[in-house]
Design a protein around this nucleic acid. Structure first.
Lengths: 124, 124
DNA sequence: TCCTTGTTCAACCAATTGGTTGAGCATGAC
DNA sequence: GTCATGCTCAACCAATTGGTTGAACAAGGA
């Protein structure tokens, strides 16, 4: 899958609180669709749909065990997101630091100018 | 804003490639709506809507400069996402490590049993 | 073979989303 | 005041989404 398209799907998948909760519970271990659906007020079919969304995003995989379809979290996909996020956070932070440096320089120049003026005043 | 609701909005906001591109460009510095809209094929109003989604998610803020509305990236919100992601990634990784340890133990036991059996064979 | 269990598929519905266009508003320039 | 600029608001449209129910499928147990 193209990376931008996968980013679309992963972010969209995690935009739903039910799906985030599914991911949270799957981090503790694999589970079947029935087990996953039990705590929610919605139908089993709705949960099955949510799992399909997560699967299409590459966040989970499903195998087979008799009638059951155990669901497994594929945590590597998280890296795709954190890489994207960290890249721009770092860029923004570096920009702030440069801005701070410029402001600090301006401040120092001001203080330097003040001190020079004072020195001149004292000398005159 | 409640944290789950903000997570909904932030993830949903970044699920759109145009909005991710806006964030990427804003990481390089503030910009006006017109500047941001220029490279895209869509109308200025569409970009304005995208910026509203990013603003509602807390990802950008807008101030005023005469007729212009400079847009500014609020990079702190990224932390909310990375905190959520890292929590479950760590949990999943720890689980894998425990599983590896169990498998290694089983393997050692097997080798131990093999060796014991061999020893017994050799001893008998 | 038929039944039960676990799950998916299909059709439908209401709400949301991303886009459009046209009108309107805020602000500085004349 | 009038005008131009930069942007938002409102109404609308097609496509997508999250939910429903009912039917169908896959696989083990009686």
């Amino acid at each position: 899958m193209a990376e931008p398209e996968q980013l679309n799907r992963v972010f969209a998948a995690l935009a739903d609180p039910t799906r985030r909760d599914l991911v949270a519970r799957l981090a503790a271990g694999d589970a079947t669709v029935g087990e996953l659906a039990a705590p929610y007020a919605v139908s089993l079919q709705a949960v099955s749909k949510h799992l399909k969304v997560l699967e299409d995003a590459g966040l989970v995989s499903r195998s087979r065990d008799a009638q059951r379809r155990p669901v497994h979290l594929e945590a590597e996909v998280f890296d795709l997101m954190t890489k994207w996020i960290e890249r721009y956070r770092r860029q923004a932070e570096e920009r702030y630091q440069r801005l701070d440096a410029v402001l600090a320089d301006l401040h120092n120049d001001d203080r330097g100018a003040d001190r020079a003026a004072t020195d001149e005043g004292e000398a005159s």
